[in-house]
């Protein structure tokens, strides 16, 4: 019954769906970006990549994308981990808080972007409240620092971090902390030498997921970002839908570059998680 053949037959449909529908698109996109297929005005080669990366739009877009992803990831992780650690110490309400956090998870980012836009826009609720208090706020939507974009990502992802960390804390972490306390570790030492190192793999994994998502997401910066510079996903879409024929290949080229960075982060994570234990140990010395 547990034969290989049955197993292969069972997993094949899902694999086929991913390989054909996802991998196929990826491969065909790669071919188009290299001028090997599709509508193209150039021969084969890296023309599309060269064209799209040579202007300042790409460099600035890349920097903006990295800024948004890094800041969102760091803030979401810090807030989520702190909330999880605080929530663990609370006398009650943990289940309600977890339920509320779970409730927020499936809200589509697009709706989050619309809501954050209404909240932070120049004439939004926050600006009205600030005005009533006699304060003038700087622009938060379509501003140079992409504040609204970051706020949306942090709002959505911090509860996600919270839930993952709470789940990780539900494991043997508590027992290890008790052992550390009986061995004479003060609360602060327990946190630094036991709790955080034990949570590190989960935190790192969540951070990678948030980073690569924020790097590749289109709707939020498209709605809340500036017209220039544009984060890479917006730039990719703009090029892809541009009037000229060469735009398609350039758009795909940008999209694939994002994919490379995102996958690179995941690979770095796999590499790091294998050495995570060693690294943490080194940091303790």
């Amino acid at each position: 019954m547990n034969t290989r053949r049955t197993g292969l037959l069972l997993i094949l449909p899902a694999l086929a769906a991913v390989v054909l529908l996802f991998g196929g698109g990826l491969g065909y996109g790669l071919a188009q970006s290299l001028g090997l297929a599709g509508f193209t005005d150039t021969g084969p080669g890296l023309v599309a990549y060269r064209r799209v990366t040579e202007g300042p739009a790409f460099t600035e877009g890349l920097l903006l994308s990295l800024w948004i992803s890094l800041v969102s990831t760091v803030l979401a992780v810090v807030i989520g981990v702190a909330a999880a650690l605080a929530l663990r110490r609370t006398s009650g309400g943990r289940r309600t808080a977890t339920f509320l956090a779970q409730l927020g998870l499936p809200v589509p980012h697009l709706i989050g972007a619309v809501a954050v836009g209404l909240l932070l826009a120049d004439s939004g609720l926050l600006a009205r409240a600030a005005h009533a208090a006699g304060v003038t706020l700087p622009a938060l939507v379509a501003d140079p620092y992409a504040v609204a974009v970051i706020v949306e990502y942090v709002w959505k992802e911090a509860p996600f971090v919270l839930i993952v960390v709470l789940a990780a804390l539900g494991g043997p972490v508590g027992e290890h902390e008790r052992v550390a306390a009986t061995l004479g570790a003060r609360p602060r030492q327990v946190l630094r030498h036991v709790t955080l190192p034990l949570l590190a793999p989960s935190i790192l994994a969540v951070a990678v997921l948030i980073f690569s998502f924020a790097l590749g997401a289109y709707e939020v910066p498209a709605l809340l970002g500036r017209a220039y510079p544009q984060p890479l996903p917006v730039l990719a879409y703009q090029r892809f839908t541009a009037a000229e024929l060469s735009g398609r290949a350039e758009g795909i080229a940008v999209a694939l570059l994002i994919a490379v960075i995102a996958v690179g982060a995941a690979v770095a994570y796999t590499w790091a998680s294998r050495r995570a234990a060693g690294r943490v140990t080194g940091a303790l010395r």
């Binding site: 290890h176 306390a181 061995l183 004479g184 327990v190």
Partner: peptide, 20 residues
Amino acid sequence: PPHRRDLGVVFQRPLLFPHL
């Protein structure tokens, strides 16, 4: 609190710190 009682405790499970 436990950390100021100057104890050593061994539980049923070894609970060695996996990162050390």
